[in-house]
Design a protein around this nucleic acid. Structure first.
Lengths: 208, 208, 208, 208
DNA sequence: TATGAATGAGTTTTCATTCAT
DNA sequence: TATGAATGAAAACTCATTCAT
């Protein structure tokens, strides 16, 4: 990712919000420009087209969220509890705070037709990263040796499924809905995890 | 919902597809008209505005999917297995076949700003309906008397969470992804359900 | 002027108001039709085009106002006072009450380009009629033999000028303005008339 | 009134003519643009809407005619003769020469519904200015001390009435008509004025 | 006589993009 | 790097008119 000038950065900063709120089609370069403190034509000194701006913003958003995910799982490292729990719990706060995440989800779910591939590729990498972190955490923690690789795969899939489910809840529902859904899915998830180990040793549960 | 003339119906038929594929903003009345075999101006003999067309299409889509859901759960009635299983398994087929469902999800997740409320209200009713069916199925089946109301609530929440998770998978991912996710979430879900009953009687599992 | 069917009459009745309020260009056949209790297409069973409707309405309006003028001057016949006084005094009431008059003035002042000639010709006939009535009244009353023909002509011109001046006041101003203007112009007019006869015989004045 | 760029000025120059000839509704931005040597879309670099263009043109027209009126009465200052005479005599020339005046009258008489208030307010100020000038001239000239304030008011009203009457004549009639009407109203007006002073000193007459 | 449906031409307006400065 | 001006293309929408029924 190439380095951006301060002006270009500022444009991107404004643009993420705008694209996140309105989507690609309903976003106007004019509005973005004005909010960035310049005229529409000036954007073209920084980006060759709406598409390029959008893609740049996408890369930045990806980068931001990649790093966020890394921090999130790093912080969790020492903790007990179900792997990935911290990430799930913080998702709602992150969503409110990070236009990058809001942009990312909107764009990933319904990418502009012309750049579908780029978007899809990027977002899959993002999810793969989450999966990777979860997997490591899961392996590193309590599942040590006993767990079969294909069992692990199942829990990775389920975890990502839960992540997406919460994403959607964030997109169209209320905070109360999010909390309920998080509780429900966490419960189910940890129930299942606990069965892995056998009731004898006592399952790990998400706690809220 | 008022009765539509054949022409108006045809327009809607074309429009669902179009809106589902491109979203509200990127859809052009011109294209819809041409695909419906008429000129742009003729649309206005049937719908007073793009908004009205869109909302009509939304109502139709809701109606269609309401009925689909009803059929789906009705058919499942006699079956054994986890409640709502049939719905989940058929989701991918439905998504491929029903522009109404594709339209519904896209619209619900990112509604046009001007009619957000209408859309949200309608979609919440749709989800509430699914929850209702699941709940009935769950009560009617194996959970009989023993299950506490708040436990049931949790499983309803989890079920809807799974539904949304699969929706998202359908929207941005491949069929393989869908199958894996369905398996994973089903496994987790039925694990958790099985714990409800106690290991003694042997848990019910989703089977694929 | 051809006889109109009841439906056609009703359309015209609605149309005068509409044209008077919005002018030719800003009037829509759709609105006129709806207010006349039918659909746009049905208008064409009665009039071959917007133009023809407009012209028919114009003829009707002319006819109405011709008759009104006749009544007005006839009623004045026996009265003392300045000739044409009654007409001037009643103008404001007529304007409020008669969409035909409002239509007539608007149309005469700014006729649709395509039918300028027709309109102009018609309206000039209307003014000529007023002039005629005024002239007769003037001759018949106190100006008897002594007044030179060219003097009479001047007062005719002045009278029509006053009429137009009041028309304009009605069009763009308030009732108070009308009253003031009427008083002022009447005063001036009767002053001048009174000089015709010489102070000896005592001038006739408009009185309000 | 904000300063206009040369392009914007040129557009306005073209637009006054167009609006004066066709009125608001029958004027097309496309035609105005083309006559101004540009494409339709370019207008929007200078004016945000048809309304804004129209209002700007209205302000310009008002300004122009305000200044014209000022010049007219200033030039008359030294003259003998009836106050406001010069203005009346030059009206026809002004009307032919000044699209601004033609625009002003058309717009004032039948303003677009949406901006009626703005138009009315502006035009009333224009008329008030004329009245003011006339009043000063009348006071300054021969009416010195003897004339009662309410008498003066009457002549102001009459003068404005005459102005409007001539306006209308310009709008719908021929130059010959104008000349006749001017003569007639001037005669009547000066007759009445002359009565003010008493026959002894000899009245002032409009002469043509 | 009335109308639902269709349509060509035209409306105002928006937008991404270009280019000379 | 920034911008004012211009523009082609397209948007949503309106309108008078036609025509089969």
């Amino acid at each position: 990712m190439k380095q951006l000038s301060p002006s270009a950065s500022n444009i991107c900063f404004v643009a993420v919000e705008h694209f996140a709120d309105h989507g690609y089609d309903a976003s106007s370069l004019n509005e973005i420009a004005v909010r960035a403190g310049m005229r529409k034509a000036s954007l073209y000194a920084h980006f060759v087209s709406k598409d390029e701006l959008f893609q740049t913003v996408f890369e930045i958003a990806l980068e931001h969220e990649h790093q966020y995910i890394a921090r999130c799982f790093k912080e969790e490292a020492g903790h007990m509890g179900v792997p990935g729990q911290l990430h799930l719990e913080r998702l709602i706060g992150r969503y409110e705070v990070s236009a990058h995440l809001r942009f990312l989800l909107r764009t990933a779910y319904f990418p502009p037709a012309d750049i579908r591939t780029v978007i899809t590729t990027g977002f899959e990498a993002y999810l793969a990263r989450i999966r990777q972190y979860f997997q490591s955490a899961a392996q590193g923690k309590y599942m040590s040796a006993a767990v079969q690789p294909d069992e692990l795969e199942v829990f990775c899939d389920a975890y990502l499924g839960i992540v997406d489910s919460l994403h959607v809840e964030l997109i169209y529902a209320t905070p109360q809905g999010y909390v309920k859904r998080l509780a429900a899915l966490s419960r189910v998830f940890s129930d299942s995890l606990s069965m892995l180990e056998g009731a004898s040793r006592g399952g790990v549960r998400f706690v809220r």
